[in-house]
Amino acid sequence: MRPFTYERAADPQAAVKAAAETPGARFIAGGTNLLDLMKLEIERPQHLIDVTRLPLAEIEDTAEGGLRIGAMATNTAVAADRRVRARYPVLTQAIVSGASGQLRNKATTGGNLLQRTRCPYFYDTTKPCNKRQPGSGCSALEGISREMAILGASTACIATHPSDMAVALAALDAAVETLTPGGKARRFPLLQLHRLPGETPHLETHLTPGELITAVVLPPPPEGGQLYRKVRDRASYATALVSIAVAGGKLALGGVAPKPWRAAEAEAALAAGASPREALGAELASATSAGDNAFKISLAGRLGAAAIEEARAQGRGQ
């Protein structure tokens, strides 16, 4: 691990001020992804700002009937929250389908959104990777592509976003609250947080450098059933090959794209009376394969349709 200096932020304003003023500064919360990448020298921050003791771990009801989840709330705390389990079960299901018990106890809501891809070529520093080293090339395009994206990828990068939690949040129409480097609060839809890779896969979000996520806000729960379904290579503790979050009529796919993928085409088709299978077909019409990952296209169609049917049956039972 490269040397770095360390400070513990006293309050959110001090955190963003330090980030703005210190070259090479990064925030650290749970650290489960960042420290892993620092050991491999894929991440090389010169300064770490510890935000874990900021008063941002609360989960509170909003006046609109939703929930505000503090960015420092751990995955375990969110998954176990009684209100989340009763009103947003898809979020609990998504969180507990990811990582391990130990990691969920550490990983935070804000950090989960900003975790980086598990693409094996991103992790292998002996191989070209446009995300790790811009302009060096993409090894996955002609390499082992079984885990790679089928939607939203580019000729520069076909890596996927690994979060399960974010897929549920995308289906739930969550918003993200931040503090800008200038100390101003702002709020925007979660779907506007992540970028598609295009020619610049090293740029993964629309956050300004030094901008701090402070909370995720859920609107009131949607009408209808909610469900998270995930297919992976092991029964537990593995990232998704394909996953889907259903929240009433809203759908999001995981494991298939560089960002949590809101399936707007499928939603529109469903609203127009298409069958679940036809709706997923509409979403996946633009899907592309690099070879080994072609199975994800048919898997997403089948898993998605089955999950929609199951959520509908649940919704009718309510």
């Binding site: 513990r8 650290i28 650290g31 892993d36 550490k106």
Partner: peptide, 10 residues
């Protein structure tokens, strides 16, 4: 927690 993925100073 995994003690390998946590800084002691934290």
């Amino acid at each position: 927690i995994n003690s390998c993925l946590s800084l002691a100073v934290m």
